[in-house]
Every structure is written in C-alpha cells, then in structure tokens.
Design a protein around this nucleic acid. Sequence first.
DNA 1: AACTCTGATGTGAGA
DNA 2: CATCAGAGTT
Length: 746
Amino acid sequence: MNHAFERALAGLNPRQREAVGLTTGPILVIAGAGSGKTRMLTVRIAWLVEREGVLPSNILAVTFTNKAAREMRERVLQLIPGSGSDVTLSTFHSFCCGLLRRWSAHAGFPDGFTIFDEDDSEKLMKSAITELHLDLKDFAPKKMLSLISQAKNDLVEPADFKPVHLHSDTLIEIYRKYQAKLTENRALDFDDLLMLCWKLLSTHPDLLEKFHKRYTYFLVDEYQDTNHAQYRLLKLFAQNTGNLCVVGDEDQSIYSWRGATIRNIQEFEKDFPGTRLVCLDQNYRSTQRILDAAGALISHNVRTHVKNLWTDTQGGEPLSFNHASDDREEADWVVGQIRAMADRGAGLRNFAVLFRMNSLSRSIEQSLTRFGIPYEVTGGTKFFHRREVKDVLGYLRVIANPHDSVSLARIINTPRRGIGKTLLAKMEAEGPLWESIVEHAKAGTKGKIAQFHDMIAEWRDRSPDESLFALVKSILDKTEYLNYLSDTDPDTAEERRGNIDSLVSDIRYQEEADPELGLRGYLEKVSLQSDVDDLDENTDRVHLLTLHNAKGLEFPVVFMIAMEEGIFPHYSAHAEPSELEEERRLAYVGMTRARERLLLSAARRRMVFGTWKPGIISRFLTEIPRSVFEGTPSTHSAPSNPSIRSENYSTLEAVPVRQTLFEGSTWVQGSRSSRSDRDSVPASMGNIHPGTEVFHPVFLHGKVLATEGESLGDFRLTIFFKKVGKKTLLLQYANLKVIQTKSSGG
DNA sequence: AACTCTGATGTGAGA
DNA sequence: CATCAGAGTT
C-alpha cells in the first residue's frame, strides 16, 4: 500500500479524480487557473504506475518550462519514490533535442550541433541577407526570422514556403540561404528542434517504432500554448496507443506570437476522436473577489470552452487601484503598499510586481532600492546573455563546434589579438570561417591566425579528457580575459568579473551534479534554459517579472502596474481583435496569479524612451466591475475617478490584509531593518564560518555548513542553498556575499 | 590595419 | 539605453 499516493488520491475533488482515472485513449482536461492541474497530472502519473502497472519509463510528460518539469518530478517522486525518476519529464524543446542527438546519424547531421539562440540567429540572418546582396532595411532580419519561424512552426520547408509578401520569391531565397548557413554552422535554431524531430520520426518508421516501444502514455501540460509542430509531434507520439492526456486552458493562451495556436485546444476533440472531456473549475488559489474580477474581464473574449471558476473561500479583500500622476509616483505607491504589509509581518517573498514589458521594471527597481527592499527580477537582461558571459561561452561553443561561425567571429578578436575587421571580413569571404582559419594556419608563417587556431585546437584535443571547470579556467588564463575586462572598461570590470565567477561556479556546480554532462551537455542546458527556471519563490525578495513569465506561478499579493492603453493592451495589438483578445488573456493570467490581494495601477504620464507619454487608463480596468474594488466610489464612474486615488493614499497605513498572509512568515522583524544587498559584504576567509548566511549570485541564499582548507587557493566551503541544496565551492571563485544580521554585527 | 569614438538607430512577450 | 555602422585616430 502506497500511503502517499492513496492520500493524494483521496484528496482530489471528483473532477480531478475522474481525470486521473480516464487513462485509456485521448483526454482533454480543461483546467482553469489554480484548479490543481499539477496535482491532477502527478497523481495521474502515480495512478498509471500504481494501479495500472504501467512502467514509469513508458510515460512521457511534457511541460512548458524546465522549472515546471523539475517541480513535477519532485512531486511524482513523493508519490512513487524510487521508480518515479524513470518517468520522462521534460520540455518539448529539451526532449526533441535529446532525440535528435541520440538519432543524429539518421537525421543527417552531426551530434555535435550547436543550438542557436535569437541573437545568434539574427547575426546569421544578417549575413545571409548581406550575402544575397539585399538591403537590411528592406528585409529586416528580425522580421525575416519571425516569418521563417512561423514557417518552421507550421513544418514548412523552403521548397513549400509560400509567404504572403510583396517579394515572396526573395523571402524563399532568404529562408533557403539562412537554412544553408545553419547547416554550414552545424547549428539548429529553436524551431528546428521541433521541426527536425517531427521530420525524423515521420520519415523513419524504424525509429518511430522504437519510439512507440519506449513510450505508451503521454501527458502534456499547457496545451493551449503548443504550436502546430508540437501538435503534429503529439499525433505521431500517440498514434499507436492514443493514450494522450492534454491539459490546458484557452483563457491562458498567451504565446500566439511565438507560433502557439489556440486551435489545438479548441479542435482537440476533432483531432483525436473519442476524446473524453473533463473540466476542472474549482479554484484552490484565489479569493472569490479575485476570481470575480478575472472572470468579468475574460468574459469580454469570445470563447469555446466557457467555464466559471469558483472557490470555497468566499469574499476576500477588495482589489485596489491607484491612478498615479507619473511612473515614479506609481512605483512609490507600490513600494509603499509593500512596506505597509511587510511592516505588519508579511515576508517579501509574498509580493510580485507584474508588468507588460521588461523596461517597466526600472521605476519599481529604483523605488525598491531607495527603500532598501531586496528584490529579484526574473527575465530581462538574462545572465547568460551578458556580454562577458557570452564571450566565455563563445570559447566553449567554438571548442565544442568550431563550425559555429557566429561564436567564432565573436571571440576571434576578444580579447584583442590583432585580428581585426578587415582580416575577418577577408576570411569570411573565403568560405566557412573555420575552414579559412585552418587554411591560414596551414600556410606556414606562425601568424596571429595560426596562434589562434592552435590554441583552439589544443583545447579541442584536451576537452574530452578534462573537466569543464579546468577547461574554462584554462580559457580564462590563456586569454587573460580578466585583464582584458579591466583594461577595456575599468568601471564595470568588477561587476563583469563577478559574472565570470558566477559562470565558473555554475559550471563547477553543474559538473558536480552530473559528471556525465560534458561540454555539449552543458551548452545544451544553457541554451534550453528559461528565465523562470531560476526563479525561486522562497527567496525572501519582492519578485519582479513580466506577465508572460508569471504564467504558472502564484503569489499571495500581486501588483499589475502600467495598466494603460498602448502599454497594456500593447499598441501593436490594437488593430487585430485576436491580438487584443490575447492581451486580455494575458491580463487574465496576471490577475489569476494572485492568491489574496490584487493591486492595479496606472500613471497619468510616463517616461518612455526619454520622453513623457500621456497615459490613458487601460480598457481592461473598465472591464472589471466596480464592485470588486475597495472604496467603491459613489459616483458611477470607471476606476479613473480621482477619489479612488486619494482613498488609497489615505488608507495606506491601514491596508486591510487577510491574516493568512502573515502566517508562517520568517521575515517578520527582519523587514524593518531591511536585509538588503547593501547590508552584505564580500565573503573572505575571515568572515565566513559554519552558520554564516551567505548570498551567491546564481544559487542565491544559503547557509555555510563547513569550511576546509588553509590557503585562499583551496579554501572550500560546504554550503546549503535553499534553491539548489548542498554544494561545495571554492571561496576564491564563488563571489559570495556574507549577509549581515543583527547578531553578526550588521 | 586595428582601435576608438560618435551619433544614429530601433526598442513586445521568450524556448 | 544598448547596439552598430562609419568616420577619425593610432
């Protein structure tokens, strides 16, 4: 008798229980926000194993982010300890990438392929357009990429590409050229991962058969955000057994601009005949008040599977709205609210500030900094996209795959080694960059290019036998990269150095966690990582993130700022009704992240690109009934009524907050003295001992368990990080900060 | 020929 | 506000 499983099963509501038990054939689970779909999915996996004797290794579950996969894996392991780890839990992209590597020989490309991100692809596209003697202004690389991305998402190859465009023939040329260049670079872009995987399975019956022997049960989370390629992949996957369970909510479809099509969920019953339909509409997350507001908003969309979320917890705090005079005042209002609640004992981890675009986080960040409140931005300028990090990764990528000309061009003269633009352009004109480098190196005369070539070649030879950590250290040593940083930009050198340290720490950590990882494995992991994968709800900081990144998360208190026409809904969505509806779904997603309190704000004017722009209240605000807001004005106006604003300000100190927010909070007294980064000092051998609380740029908060070593060179720390668990780090490279507490003299 | 500086430019969301 | 092409400097 598996008690954990039985208990979880008994805890399900009738609908969830039904969705768990319908294991044969296709099933569509319409799961509203906060309806416990992750619980349902994990119990379903456990049910398959415990009740139906399905081998865990026959189960494939696909999620939207690695974070979701990781969390689901943890929960599955709780239900079925041990064998639960044999369940394949992955994102579409990671899973396809794995298949392509395993079967690369059949797919007709080397398994050492590199995954190109948006930046890489753009550089490649630019060179493709230039080589075709076209003008980058007429054929904007980003625009071209998005058209080609669409085509790939629809499984359309250059030969069948029929773009609706004035110069459609040229576009086909561009697609062809771009694809040829990818091949030349031995690289795949994100869309290739899906398209080529589908192509591989649909043209190799032997491989498909192997696949079907391995996997017989399929589960897909966030089905509303799958694209056509993913749908076709699923058709192939489930074509034998038909045991396909998809979970989604069309009201939360927010990625159509990335090729996702709501059609997949709307037509699922037609696509997979015999589908059983289950609807989860009991919400376990938010108050009725929040659900009423969100429900009213989303009812302005045309929907096929209409559901009305309900909850046992009646009432709840009213929503707040603040119409500030400008963005700074708006930010101060947000921070004022946070302070008021934090002073009453709410931990900072409870707060999330959501916004439509990354640039909107600035004013909030400034205000939080002013008050010394720790925060964490998820997304925006990503760690792995920082210049110095990309430089070092560029070396690793070239070592893994020297045909990657984008990385090659990046590092060939970074740090300076006298191979400038002209020489580079000359070599690029001679053919694939690496091949010209080899030619130049062969040509005798041990010049700069030969030196560069030999350096890379040596690392290439060594890399299979050497640890990644040793390799990256060798790169930093030999190129004197850190000196290069201080020489070129002394102002930012320290910060950049810190980022390099974090990268080295990350490499070391990943390598220790998985000794089989290897160079390619690491690079693949980095490429397929998403921003939210790193988000840790348990670090006691205010969370700042875009509405898109907030998908799948929940917070007790949610702020949605910049609720203004042109920003949200975004101006580019105004013309198209379907895009406007997607914006509304995005608002719906944001609102339903809130458990207890939802606070909205807008500004009358806002600094955008250096100029003041007037702000008009978002139509979404007017679609939320007045009755759910606090201090409901007696006048019959929309929330733009100024009385609401003064109301909010006057009640700022007396914000009513439900008691639950403060329960189990570890922050409590800490909030006044604000344990911000400014209260921390760099870790040194002198100030670090067992028990010391530390902060690491990648692994965040941790506590030192033990120290070992006498000299700086081998001073090792064993630290327990809340986020990643126990880790051993070399102090020298860890870039740790010691958090000063009252007892330690801060 | 490489390096440095300047001004123009383009800016949604992200695996 | 970050990137980039092109002019000017070493």
